[in-house]
Design a protein around this nucleic acid. Structure first.
Length: 222
DNA sequence: CCAGACGTTGTT
DNA sequence: GTCTGG
DNA sequence: CCAGACGTTGTT
DNA sequence: GTCTGG
């Protein structure tokens, strides 16, 4: 699944691959955890892409207690079109979460964290959905969740789920607000090809969200 | 009708 | 054991 | 996802 | 908001 990730991308690279109209101001993050503020990309009604900051953990618009978002950090692709918390968002409020890689923990043997990134070091793009929650004081809180799918052969030994990773050619379709038919979207939910990814073990430093240094992604040698 | 849930993960 | 917070 | 808390009272 | 369960 996806419960921790990184974004270490120069603004130029981010703007280029995601087709942003302006250079974003973005800093490197080595250990992004649920509940934190994260930049995501969505498209406005005019088709213009924008980088916006949202909280990780989707709070449905109808939620009475926003803490529900702490649990909704992932949405299973197999059920995202049916679940009450997600089915509206999946039709009209899709987003892409730019990343460099994500972490996964093994549970067989000892709990060992792994870092997964693109084999060629290029940016990674998670498929996500977002919602807007109205607080009692009238303010708005935007939040998102990351879709998950079955693990591919590279990830499977670590974990049975992985995030839905989009190919650059799929960004237009995913972000198009006029496309609402599930059958046009479900084909994007396939596990990303193993040969385009790489994975290596990392130190347990990453376990605590308080540690946010480059050492989090360094390969451990045994 | 109203009340209560609405989610994922992993582990057993 | 289970929930909250990051 | 993992780490860390997990409680009440009264007083400052 | 919308569905399920009582």
């Amino acid at each position: 699944m996806c419960g921790r990730f990184t974004i270490i991308l120069p603004p130029e690279v981010l703007a280029e691959i995601f087709g942003l109209p302006e250079l974003p101001r973005i800093e490197a993050r080595y250990n992004i955890a649920p509940t934190q503020e994260v930049v995501v990309i969505r498209q406005n009604a005019e088709g213009l892409r924008q980088l916006v900051t949202m909280k990780w953990g989707l709070i449905p618009s109808w939620a009475k207690d926003p803490h529900i978002g702490n649990k909704l950090i992932n949405a299973r692709c197999e059920s995202v079109h049916e679940k009450p918390a997600f089915r509206q968002a999946i039709c009209t409020r899709r987003c892409v979460i730019p990343a460099s890689g994500f972490y996964d923990w093994t549970h067989t043997d000892k709990k060992i964290p792994f870092y997964v990134s693109m084999a060629d070091g290029s940016p990674m793009a998670f498929a996500g959905i977002w919602d807007s929650w109205k607080a009692p004081d009238g303010s708005r809180l935007e939040s998102f969740t990351i879709l998950t799918t079955n693990a591919n052969s590279l990830i499977a030994p670590i974990h049975d789920r992985m995030p839905v990773i989009l190919h650059p050619a799929e960004f237009d379709l995913w972000l198009d607000r006029d496309i609402t038919e599930p059958e046009k979207l479900t084909r994007l939910y396939q596990p990303y090809p193993s040969d385009l990814l790489r994975a290596w073990p990392v130190s347990s430093l990453v376990n605590s969200p308080r540690n946010e240094t480059p050492a989090c992604i360094e390969q451990t040698v045994s």
